[in-house]
Amino acid sequence: MTAIADARPELTDLSPIASGRVSVLVTVRGGYCAACGGTDFAVGQALYLGFLFLDEDDDAYLVALTCRNPSCPQPRTAIRLRYKEFLA
């Protein structure tokens, strides 16, 4: 049986600094959970959109956000950022 890796190669882990910048940006932009209204998110991995998706700019990224509200019915969402906003 072939060993199956769980890590998706298109997703990259963020450094603590990059994650911090993402959190700040979410707050600055007034981001909130569409399901429960919460504003506290855990920052997850990033997906580079620019290559795979035609409708995205070359420097577009999507960063995973998970609502920290334990009773949130739909906690997983994301924020779209440019490379220089959190990775540069």
Partner: peptide, 18 residues
């Protein structure tokens, strides 16, 4: 080419948990 729908991209960044 992959779906450009927003829901797909959000699913993808969470490794398709949803």
């Amino acid at each position: 080419k992959p779906p450009t729908a927003e829901f797909y991209k959000v699913m993808a960044v969470h490794n398709f948990v949803d």
